[in-house]
Simulated assay, not measured.
Amino acid sequence: PLSVSYAFGMALNGANGSTYDAIRNVLELQGLTEDQINQSFKSLMLLLMQLDDKVIFEIANSIWYDDTFPVLKSFIDINKEYFDAEVTALDFADPAAVDIINGWVSDKTHEKIKEVLDKIPADAVMYLINAIYFKATWLYEFDKAYTTQENFYTEDQGTKKCQMMRTTADLNYYFDENFSAVTLPYGNEFYNMTIILPNTQTSIKDFITTFDLSSWQTLLNNMAVGKGTVELPKFISEYKLIMNDALIKMGMGIAFSGDADFSRIVEAFSIFISRVIHQTFVQVDEEGTEAAAVTIIEFKIISAPGGTPELDFVIRLDRPFYFIIHEKNSSTILFMGKIGLPEWKE
């Protein structure tokens, strides 16, 4: 997801040696120089924020450090230049520090994510934070008059009720023996939500484990255009995850260990990544989508090793599905998630 990439893009500017290589490789930026990487982050940020005047897309980056922590000016300067990072020194021992950081996150996500940071540990010295906010209306809005209460068949909680929306339009779609997919465009069609429904024999968990970047590109390249009906439940999805284990499995283990080298952040002592917190909010209704994401990288000091005939298709999303919100031209993935049970609150 984009938010995680931007947070680690900033961290990359402080990493050295094998730690730098590990972060760069997980971000799939091999073969690019550091300047090319920074320029690509800056260019993409400007592109996404200016791309569609019918879509609100905002991205913000910040650096927070304890006021006793001797952070290198060069690290601050490069992240200000390429990531437009806001920089603040705080007394991390002050109980108000958590509220100040959470206040920044709440402001940048239009109050959709209010309390992402639960505490500041005594040995924490720095936080790198990315926040993204997205609000867009469907190109083909769902008529509220056609929204009805329908069954949704969960994998482990039986049959539940949902608010099922309906629309019929000319859309990009794909069907094969493994899954069905449809793309719903926003605004001027630069931003889209692609919804993927695995076949009835495949669980959403099993599908996600096999659906990789190559599968995603293959899907996009093989979609057809046709007139179809989409039945999609309204939902609000809120998710929070500590990403340490996932990132370590992907090859970033050294950054979380006593061997981490972030000597381009601080020279006086060694630091490592202690937590990566990722939180998202996605609301989908008849008018469109509102979404937010936040990623926080926490650093600590190292103290020890550590169908009907007239339609081409019909897709009814009445069982767990996967969604991806993305930008068409750059193929940038903004948000993604699975809906095992579509929950809605007025």
Rank of each mutant, 00 (worst) to 15 (best):
L2S: 08
S3I: 00
S3N: 05
V4Y: 07
A11W: 04
G14P: 11
G14E: 12
Y20G: 00
I23R: 02
Q30D: 02
T33K: 10
E34Y: 05
F41K: 03
L47H: 14
L51H: 07
I56N: 08
I56Y: 06
I59M: 11
S62M: 14
D66T: 04
T68D: 14
V71N: 06
K80S: 03
Y82E: 02
A85S: 15
I100G: 02
I101C: 04
H110Y: 12
I113R: 08
I113T: 03
K114A: 07
D118F: 09
Y127H: 11
A131S: 15
F134L: 00
D143R: 12
N151R: 05
E155Q: 13
Q163C: 08
Q163Y: 14
A169F: 09
L171W: 11
Y173H: 14
D176N: 15
T194L: 14
T194P: 11
L197P: 02
N199V: 09
S203T: 15
F207K: 03
T210R: 13
T210V: 10
T218M: 07
M223E: 13
G226T: 05
K227A: 05
G228T: 04
L232V: 03
N244K: 13
N244M: 03
L247V: 00
G251H: 07
G251L: 09
A260I: 02
R264H: 05
V266C: 14
E267N: 11
A268Y: 08
Q279A: 13
Q279K: 15
D285L: 13
E286H: 10
G288C: 08
E290S: 05
T295Y: 10
V314N: 08
H326D: 07
N329R: 11
I339G: 03
G340L: 11
L341T: 07
